[in-house]
């Protein structure tokens, strides 16, 4: 990690608007300088290792082509350098069954869309400290 106030964050999201929301939130409102955003999951493994910095936390959208969030999680967990990173689902699917699936498949937390930017800074801090958070409404 660069430092506590400037974490390295990776976000994978295929929806343009959602990307723009997180980009503004992280770079403009929270003024983070190391924010990387992938537009889809193509060549995810190569793109991940090609990043100039190793992320401190990864946010994944779930419903995505060609590989969904669960596929990307498997790649992260299979890589020795990245296996222990906190991986958080950022999804608009908030049915209980889906959240249960996220937990059993090994995500470290889930945040529902719409993202609540008022309490996001606090939640991010806690996630970076290793806490599991399931905020699904």
């Amino acid at each position: 990690m660069t430092d506590d106030t400037n974490p390295v964050i990776l976000y994978v999201e295929d929806d343009t608007m959602s990307r723009e929301v997180m980009n503004l939130l992280l770079t403009r409102r929270l003024k983070f300088e190391h924010v990387y955003i992938f537009e889809d999951s193509t060549d995810f493994a190569q793109n991940l290792t090609a990043l100039p910095q190793k992320p401190d936390i990864i946010f994944l959208d779930i419903h995505m082509e060609p590989m969904d969030g669960f596929g990307m999680l498997e790649i992260i967990r299979a890589h020795p350098d990245y296996a222990k990173l906190p991986v958080i689902a950022l999804t608009a699917s908030v049915m209980n069954e889906e959240v249960t699936l996220l937990r059993t498949k090994g995500f470290d937390g889930a945040l529902a869309k719409p993202v609540d930017q008022r309490n996001f800074p606090d939640i991010l801090k806690r996630l970076l400290m290793g806490e599991q958070i399931w905020r699904i409404t």
Binding site: L24, A92, V115
Partner: peptide, 14 residues
Amino acid sequence: SHELRTPLNAILNF
């Protein structure tokens, strides 16, 4: 609900 939440994410945050 999923389809509605995605645009609401944009509305509320922008």
